[in-house]
Computed example of a mutant assay.
Amino acid sequence: MMRLKMGKPTGWALAAVAATAAVALAVPSAMAQRDPAYAAARAAGQIGEQPDGYLGFVTAPTPAIRALVQDINIKRKAAYTERAQATGSTVEQFAFTSGCNLIASTRPGEKYQTPGGVWKTRDEGPPERDARCP
């Protein structure tokens, strides 16, 4: 069974988790993207991707946005938990790698959180990601 320390993951281990993370994200992300409220909140810059693999609030959320994000994050955690068990990693490691992938897949104009905790708007260049990202 593969166990990683969050501080010093190996390159091949992160690559394996990253490949699996991409598959695990397909279902929760696809479901969220069908929700017009999710798309509107993302386009308005109210929510964004965080390095920990979960959505966060860029601005003070309305009750509806808070409920939407909580629902998506619950679904993400369930997917991370399932896939972490299958890959022999921890939920936190799997979520982190997923966060790397989700931030990398943001589009220009969308919000994401840097490793330092600052919310940025994605431009045409690559987003600022954690140095441990695969």
Rank of each mutant, 00 (worst) to 15 (best):
M1F: 01
M2G: 13
R3Q: 10
L4W: 04
L4K: 01
G7P: 04
K8A: 10
T10K: 08
T10A: 12
T10M: 03
W12H: 11
W12G: 11
A15I: 03
A16Q: 05
A16C: 04
A18S: 13
A18K: 03
V23R: 14
A24V: 06
A26N: 00
A26M: 12
A26I: 04
S29I: 01
A30V: 11
M31K: 14
M31N: 10
M31G: 05
Q33G: 14
Q33I: 09
D35Q: 10
P36A: 03
A37S: 14
Y38F: 15
Y38G: 12
A40M: 05
A41N: 08
R42Q: 15
R42N: 06
R42W: 05
A43C: 05
A44R: 15
A44Y: 09
A44S: 11
A44I: 12
A44M: 09
G45C: 04
G45H: 02
Q46W: 14
I47M: 14
G48R: 11
G48T: 11
E49Y: 12
P51M: 04
D52V: 07
G53C: 06
Y54E: 03
A64Q: 14
L68N: 01
L68A: 04
Q70Y: 07
D71P: 02
N73R: 07
K77P: 05
K77G: 01
A78P: 08
A78F: 13
A78C: 11
A79V: 02
T81H: 07
E82T: 15
E82A: 15
R83K: 11
A84C: 05
A84I: 02
T87M: 06
G88L: 03
G88T: 02
S89L: 01
S89M: 00
S89W: 00
T90G: 08
T90W: 00
T90F: 01
V91I: 12
E92H: 06
E92A: 15
Q93D: 06
F94M: 08
F94L: 02
S98Q: 08
S98P: 08
N101P: 00
N101K: 05
I103L: 08
A104C: 06
A104M: 07
A104L: 15
R107C: 01
R107P: 00
P108M: 05
P108C: 06
E110Q: 13
T114R: 07
G117V: 03
W119V: 02
T121K: 02
T121Q: 12
R122D: 01
E124K: 12
E124V: 03
G125V: 02
R129V: 15
R129D: 03
D130P: 10
D130W: 12
D130Y: 09
D130F: 10
A131G: 06
A131N: 04
C133K: 10
C133Y: 07
P134T: 08
